[in-house]
Design a protein around this nucleic acid. Sequence first.
DNA 1: TTGAAAGCGCTAACAT
DNA 2: ATGTTAGCGCTTTCAA
Lengths: 349, 349
Amino acid sequence: MGATIKDIARETGLGLATISSYLNGRNVREKNRIKIEAAIEKLHFEVNETARGLKTNRTRTIGILIPELNNVFCAEIISEAEDILRQKGYATILCDCRTDPAREREAIAFLLRRRADGLMVMPTGENGEILKAFLRRKRPVVVLDRKIRGLDADCVLVDNEDAAKKAVDRFRAAGHTKIGLITGPQDIYTAAARRRGFQAAMADAGLEVSDSMVVCGDYTIQGGARAMHKLREEEPEITAVLVANYEMTVGAMIEINESGLRIPQEMSVIGFDNLEFAKAIAPRLSIITQPTREIAREAVDLLLKRLSGDAGRPTQTVVLPTDYVEGKSVGVRAEEVRTGLSNRKLRRG
Amino acid sequence: MGATIKDIARETGLGLATISSYLNGRNVREKNRIKIEAAIEKLHFEVNETARGLKTNRTRTIGILIPELNNVFCAEIISEAEDILRQKGYATILCDCRTDPAREREAIAFLLRRRADGLMVMPTGENGEILKAFLRRKRPVVVLDRKIRGLDADCVLVDNEDAAKKAVDRFRAAGHTKIGLITGPQDIYTAAARRRGFQAAMADAGLEVSDSMVVCGDYTIQGGARAMHKLREEEPEITAVLVANYEMTVGAMIEINESGLRIPQEMSVIGFDNLEFAKAIAPRLSIITQPTREIAREAVDLLLKRLSGDAGRPTQTVVLPTDYVEGKSVGVRAEEVRTGLSNRKLRRG
DNA sequence: TTGAAAGCGCTAACAT
DNA sequence: ATGTTAGCGCTTTCAA
């Protein structure tokens, strides 16, 4: 087996406390430091973080619990969060619950047994009860991209209402009045918020939104394709559509392409999240992007702050702005052109 | 703090060994079992895996070390591996080294301090020295999607040569003779293997491959766009191109769209990896897909087998097949049509 | 099957 | 600054 601090103590003739002091960055006499470092080198010593964790009751481990790793929005956040965490000495235990509340519950118990110091979570639903188990044990929780009523935890969100409004405003400026929305399940905070923002913006503009102009998909590719199909069937008058996450944007594009519909001549589209994807499409897709790196940074920051003392501070919610990135997927509707935004003639959708 | 087995022992009047036996699924008298379960419930007891890990010298933790989480191929493998591992009681510590050998080295040390039982790794380069630190400590390593000379570890690969050959054969069947390849850095096993397969298939077909018909990108989106640009500049005669990973496929598509080149009339394309992306593009992209879920399953399987005893068994390499999925991005070259594969007339590229 | 006791590798008093 | 000692929560002999 590997060497322990006892071996280092014996090798150097020093006491355990000295070795421990050295390992924890406290002051050690210069000549002892040299001896210790030589012994560590010689014996290939490596701190046993497990033993340390048992003693200190802090594992320097953070659980990240998400609904789906194969979701670029999640993956980008995790990638950034893990990077920062590891630099600070924290390990990231990943738990992908596949949008399954049962697995989510099991993962929480799993992380609790592992004594994860804290949790970053993008919950599957609105039920915060499962997460309270963490809070009860005085372990901080940061909720990503959701807000859960009755759960006293820090949150990091984007301004979803505003994101939807930006899209609606862009469509309106191009003369669209029959605008559809494909959003996610209404028990997911972001999906509901984007719907609210959409409806508010439409109302502000004096535009009507019938029930069938809003379709709730399931945030998957297949769901996006189905939603697009349904929207076109029930509301053939629609000339523009906002799709409220990346996976459904891909699905909607598949459906649009398969039905032979031309963008932007017959349908204007604003998608979500993945800039690179948007650029790879022809014509280039206009999209709403979310600041995934900032979300991760804020979340890690909140978590580490709680971990380093100020656990009593009231919980806070950080709201970050989204961006609209112009592509070529929003066409001007000839009948209502007022500005010179585009000069292409459009066929009635 | 939380309850310990001592608390359970006191509460039930039983000894520690009995509680431990219960927790580890060994036989306990029925009435004691009931008492123990009641006490666990009452005191909200949860096994402390940290203590267990210290005692048993097995943390039930697997490190997954990858070059980039924002790479769908990696993300899909991790997602599946993590799922299986957690079901078996193993935690997954994720380390994304951002294709940086220094971070990769640091991550290995990190996982060693954490006493990860095993490692699944997609190395950045060909140097296996870093990984040997793991092997020296008798901890199993499974190398994903790479083969590293001089490293005695299990591997899971796909048949990259054959993948390239499939693409070349498909292009040839459509009459293409000037075929380009955009592959990755040559110190990455898969990239080199795809190149070899490409060149072998071209040679078999009696087709010439000049140096500038093969461009080595860096497996990123930007790199794919640059590579496509370079290819077109240096080899304007090319009528077909194989792009050997997903990110570069996206990049190549961006470049193609920006240059106004039409697919498949002016350029035939076969991409890699992401089926959903391929379907969302118009015209739908033909691609080579890799069996990410099987890769993950094989890798986990190899790792767990080593962990459960048969550590002495010679290392093995599992090679999985790829698939070619037909889209509409391969056009027939009129001049050389021999079969009736397509009936579209094509303009000379 | 169960109980008592030792000890995994480390940190943190406390004493020097 | 350093040495001594106890103990974190668990598993695992060894006896009974």
